[in-house]
Computed example of a mutant assay.
Amino acid sequence: MEATSKPTLLIVHGGWHFPDSYSKLTGALRTAGFEVHIPRHLSMNQSRPPNADLAADSDLIRSYATSLVEAGRDVAVLMHSYGGQVGTNSLYGLSKNARSAKGLSGGITHLIYMATFALPEGKAMIDKVEEFGHLDRMPVAFGFDEDQSCVANFPKEGLIGEPYADQIDQEELKTYIASLGRWNGKCMYLPLQNTPAWRDDVKLYFIYTLGDLTVPVDYQRSMVQHLVEKEGKTIETIELESGHSPNLTATKAVVDAVVKFTSE
């Protein structure tokens, strides 16, 4: 696939993360020939108490994506962690096929879910945690303050995964952990309010992270199974030997997957 034919890539990032947290991945994607956009979620504005949540993040991402497609761009969306909830909640109706049917150019061509949530209408991220009987793990993994802002208590072990963290440059690891911040933890409890983006006529993909402790692979597989068996969707999947942060620990594999998916 020639670089000029690559879609514009919109990354919808996770909670606790800022765009800078993805600098290794965005750099590698740009080297591979992609134009990359990664707007910062408003729920990561560090306000205390938090003043932005899933609705604000969804409005931001929809506005950003709309500006790209209305400029005639073909857009592939890569969603990580909480970003899957935001992208799912905000991007329906912007697909290239939907826009083409109205005589409009540009549109979303690929939705790529990575270590993330792809839920049906009315479901919150916490519902998946409850479904698997893991609510007792929440206060261990995440430190919630009285204002419901929260931090990841053990980023190396939980957000990255110790065996994978030990395999990368330790200065790089320290920089990554230092890039993380406080997030509005209420977002985990907020359900989808809009038609899920995966209902569009758009190509769907899921990148499984086999060693993920934050969004365990069993969660990931159950979401894909629902979309395939209950919703009749076609989803291409790949598996990465990674924890919850393949953007850091399996960067080349993520880039290879994005190149493969967007060339189809």
Score class of each variant (00 low, 15 high):
Asp57Val: 11
Ile61Gln: 10
Ile61Phe: 07
Arg62Gly: 00
Ser63Asn: 13
Ala71Cys: 09
Gly72Cys: 05
Arg73Met: 07
Arg73Glu: 13
Ala76Glu: 05
Ala76Thr: 08
Ala76Phe: 11
Leu78Ser: 06
His80Val: 08
Ser81Cys: 08
Ser81Asp: 14
Ser81Ala: 08
Gly84Glu: 00
Gly84Asp: 00
Val86Pro: 10
Val86Asp: 01
Val86Arg: 07
Thr88Gly: 04
Asn89Glu: 05
Leu91Gln: 11
Gly93Asn: 02
Leu94Asp: 00
Ser95Trp: 02
Ser95Arg: 11
Arg99Gly: 04
Lys102Pro: 14
Leu104Val: 08
Leu104Cys: 03
Gly106Ile: 13
Gly107Tyr: 00
Ile108Arg: 03
His110Ala: 08
Thr116Arg: 09
Thr116Ile: 06
Phe117Arg: 01
Phe117Leu: 09
Ala118Ile: 15
Ala118Cys: 12
Leu119Asn: 04
Pro120His: 03
Glu121Asn: 15
Gly122Leu: 03
Gly122Met: 05
Gly122Trp: 02
Ala124Leu: 12
Ala124Ser: 13
Ala124Lys: 10
Met125Phe: 03
Asp127Lys: 11
Lys128Gln: 12
Lys128His: 07
Val129Asn: 10
Val129Ser: 07
Val129Met: 03
Glu131Tyr: 06
Phe132Ile: 06
Asp136Tyr: 14
Pro139His: 04
Ala141Phe: 15
Phe142Ala: 08
Gln148His: 10
Cys150Asp: 01
Cys150Ala: 10
Ala152Leu: 14
Phe154Asp: 11
Phe154Ser: 14
Phe154Glu: 07
Phe154Met: 06
Pro155Trp: 02
Pro155Phe: 00
Pro155Arg: 01
Lys156Gln: 13
Lys156Glu: 15
Lys156Tyr: 12
Glu157Gln: 13
Glu157Arg: 11
Gly158Ile: 15
Gly158His: 11
Leu159Glu: 03
Gly161Leu: 02
Gly161Ile: 01
Pro163Cys: 00
Ala165Trp: 06
Asp166Asn: 15
Gln167Asn: 06
Gln167Val: 03
Gln167Arg: 14
Ile168Gln: 05
Ile168Lys: 12
Gln170Arg: 03
Glu171Lys: 15
Lys174Tyr: 03
Tyr176Pro: 13
Ile177Ser: 07
Ser179Arg: 04
Ser179Phe: 00
Ser179Met: 00
Ser179Glu: 07
Leu180Gln: 14
Leu180His: 09
Lys186Thr: 11
Leu190Val: 09
Leu190Glu: 08
Pro191Trp: 01
Pro191Asp: 01
Asn194Asp: 05
